[in-house]
Nucleic acid binder design. Sequence first.
DNA 1: ATGATTTACGAAAACGGTTTCGTGTTGATA
DNA 2: TATCAACACGAAACCGTTTTCGTAAATCAT
Lengths: 340, 340
Amino acid sequence: MKRKITLKDIARELEVSISTVSKALKNSEEIGRDTKEKIQAFAKLYNYRPNNIALSLKNKRTKNIGVVIPDIVHYFFTTVFRGIEKYANQKGYNVIVCVSDESFDKEVINTELLANGSIDGFIMSLSAETQQKMDFHHLLEITEQGIPLVLFDRADDHVPCDKVILNDTEISYQAVNKFLANGRKHIALVTTESYFNVSAKRAEGYEAALSEAGIPIDPALKLILPYRDINENEIRQFFAATKIDAVLCVNEIFAVQCMAIVQKMGLKIPEDISFIGFTDGILSKFVQPTLTTIAQHGERMGEISAQMLIERIEIEMDVEKPYRTEIVEATIIERESTVN
Amino acid sequence: MKRKITLKDIARELEVSISTVSKALKNSEEIGRDTKEKIQAFAKLYNYRPNNIALSLKNKRTKNIGVVIPDIVHYFFTTVFRGIEKYANQKGYNVIVCVSDESFDKEVINTELLANGSIDGFIMSLSAETQQKMDFHHLLEITEQGIPLVLFDRADDHVPCDKVILNDTEISYQAVNKFLANGRKHIALVTTESYFNVSAKRAEGYEAALSEAGIPIDPALKLILPYRDINENEIRQFFAATKIDAVLCVNEIFAVQCMAIVQKMGLKIPEDISFIGFTDGILSKFVQPTLTTIAQHGERMGEISAQMLIERIEIEMDVEKPYRTEIVEATIIERESTVN
DNA sequence: ATGATTTACGAAAACGGTTTCGTGTTGATA
DNA sequence: TATCAACACGAAACCGTTTTCGTAAATCAT
């Protein structure tokens, strides 16, 4: 087993000082030709690489960024992650991932752990519980310590930091208008609890479009589902109880599950009932009929998040830079679940 | 902005030495009651936390593990990752993720970067290109440096290390036997290039079952698809050319795509043609008809991988411990694409 | 009162680098 | 020959910890 070689090893072996070795390997003008060549050759031979940890300690820069997300087995988050990882890697950063599992405590523990020097900055999307409790003390601590933070998608106005979010309200408004243009009158919304910021904004867009069309908001047309352990019967009852000819769902899974159920109830998609979901994931493309979805452009969101974060990391500390909120424009991808 | 406080800060403020502070915070018997209490109170007040980087340098332990996988927007890999992350986190380890994007070069660069002190061990699944080139020098370097390595799923016998793999051959054998038991005679295999180790093993099980049943292996019943950019026509031609009444697919996507195409060709599933895919992901559950799949138990694989890795990390270096290969037993999840 | 133990703390090395500054040697210049 | 700059290198500080060892003062036994 060949242990990693250090500057000290090279110095001892070549009978020079550690500083000489360090300088020689950086090709410093200070060191003579012969010595430099000798040291460089030796280093190459023994495949010397500087120790990252030592560098981090010295430079106060880890070249790591921390990503804290609620879930990893989740299409949208993985696409965002891919964007982050690609950009970060290209800029020489590594990515440490922690999964909060929608739990406030895990989110707190993970951030506090990483904040003790392990990373240069955070990219996060808030856990369900954090949004519900509206407790952001851990995030405020982070920013107060001067650690850059970017929130994406599930952000909150109470946290002063850079953000990357979707134009949720606007795109929902557009989606509902699309239903209206197709002559749909009984448009339902299938969503999650409203403490999810994004759900609230999507509901807002939904309601705005209806109001604008002079259609009253009917509570019977709104179904709130838990984000896990969905009860099929609840969905069945919802669709049985009221006449519905179009449905906007705040995610892909809700849409696909609803579609399967209404199909079993004998309805035709899109003739009798039309669907639009959020998250242009794998399901939307392969389910029957294929699902019209709102593409959130996760990879792009990740890229922008990483870019904003790294920019802030690498800026001089004394430069004042106001926080920005970048808005990514969603796109409606038309498929078979809506008529053109 | 409150910068992070260090031992030195506390020492200066309280007019004691750094060593005294360090010892007091570890509740050492060496330090007097009063001094200890004073220091501990001060540390609590200013929320002192030791710097992870400094600890890593001192202890030669980063408490980080590196995970290198070919793709992250991929159901199986994310479930494995979830297993890794859960177990690692619970053991106090963080996880650095690098995505090789099926590229040999990226895999090499990422591993070499992380190997310079950033992590205590690796968990990897080989990129397509690495398997094709059969070039494992970067992995050998890692193990020669004494850095623990666990390969999961896409492993290779040429790399001496711990491994966690699926009983691919056996479960494919069982799947084909299931088709045979249902009276299917023309059983196809839809797979990837054979340099994918797992595909080769799955083909082996497929062929073994057929041979045992006295059915000759017909090359026309084997379709090799690229792992991205699938051409639909190729699939259509394949199914048009030969009589096929059952199909084993080495992944979920292949299965779902084939199913959509044969349905368009007018075939009924499972009456006319039956399907079994690998990876019990989200698609299998929601596609119509639902897909019978082979569950790879990714989360469990991840957990085992993390456990094996951390065990080896924490073992005394001088203890000889032979490499193990842990085999995870797949399970066939029956759904509508096969008859019972 | 003297020597031996405790007690309670500090100095310093170590982890593996970078970087500033100092210094002995060389050759050129006045 | 005396002065001086350039050259080539080393010593040491520093990043933030932990830990070994040394030691002054206080306590104890004799």
